[in-house]
């Protein structure tokens, strides 16, 4: 059954995929031919096809993370042909379609590479470091109930919009995967600057940035070299400006907060 484009010809491709049994075992690139791939398939649907073939022949299918397949949950990853989420800018792997490849192409597929993202299996990595960074301070310390009326806190539209831009981070980790230093600065700064911009978050802005940066360092991410690769590869367009804001927040917090230890 052809899709939206009846003239689209099915493609034959060669995949080179990282296979690794578990965290302890060494992995290797393994080559798989796939045939009859419709250009209308998403990249993950192409992998589904391969996995069904593998399964039918009794082989272990390739494990990869995915969930919503709408580009919002941030679960899908994959370093495709040398770039996180593949060749299309502003696109998660699940929204990447096979029409961006050509018949006969060889496609390499690797997991995110970072010491802080150990491989669970094949293309699945452990991104719990991101959660721990958020747990270190990515919140406003309020309990449920007892909060003021929503309109009691007016926020200028331009600030609200800017905070929103930072808040759209999907936590996929493409920034870390793209960075030559495996730095998590873009991810961390998105939350730090979102909350630093808003009056609700300003109250504890100092401890937040101090604690989140400390946790980021503990997790073993690299430092920022300002190459901009993270923002260039971010599927939702988180801006580098957030990193500058975080640097500023960090410096001023360190200079003025009362944490002497």
């Amino acid at each position: 059954m052809a899709g939206s484009n009846p003239n689209a010809k099915p493609m034959d491709l060669t995949l080179k995929v990282w296979r690794q049994k578990n965290r302890e075992t060494a992995g290797a690139m393994v080559t798989y031919p796939v045939k009859g791939i419709s250009p209308d398939m998403s990249f993950l649907e192409m992998l589904d096809v391969l996995n069904e073939d593998l399964l039918r022949s009794g082989q272990d299918p390739i494990a990869f993370d995915h969930d919503c397949r709408e580009g919002i949950c941030g679960m899908c990853s994959l370093y495709i042909n040398g770039r996180p989420h593949g060749p299309e800018r502003g696109t998660t792997t699940c929204q990447l379609h096979m029409r961006h490849f050509n018949d006969g192409d060889t496609i390499t597929i690797e997991p995110w590479r970072a010491a802080a993202f150990p491989v669970h299996k094949d293309l699945v990595v452990d991104r719990s470091a991101f959660d721990r960074i958020q747990q270190a301070g990515g919140y406003v310390s309020i309990n449920t109930g007892g909060v003021p009326d929503a309109n009691a806190i007016p926020i200028g539209k331009s600030i609200a919009d800017k905070a929103f831009d930072a808040a759209t981070c999907i936590g996929c980790g493409a920034c870390v995967a793209a960075c030559k230093n495996a730095s998590a600065m873009l991810f961390v700064s998105a939350k730090v600057s979102q909350l630093a911009m808003l009056p609700q978050g300003k109250v504890e802005a100092k401890t937040r940035v101090e604690n989140m940066v400390a946790q980021m360092d503990i997790e073993g991410f690299g430092a920022c070299s300002n190459t901009g690769a993270c923002a260039a590869e971010c599927p939702v367009g988180i801006s580098l400006e957030n990193i500058a804001i975080m640097n500023r927040e960090y410096l001023s917090a360190k200079a003025t907060s009362e944490h002497v230890a």
Binding site: Y139, V140, I142, T144, G145, V147, P148, D149, A150, N151, I153, P154, I155, G156, K157, A160, A163, F164, A167, Q194, L195, L198, Q200, G201
Partner: peptide
């Protein structure tokens, strides 16, 4: 719910006057 979410820093759409 709306009060709670705003207090958490959820960036709801706002008017130019700063209200929701």
């Amino acid at each position: 719910i709306i009060d709670q979410c705003v207090a958490q820093g959820v960036p709801f759409a706002r008017e130019y006057g700063g209200l929701l």
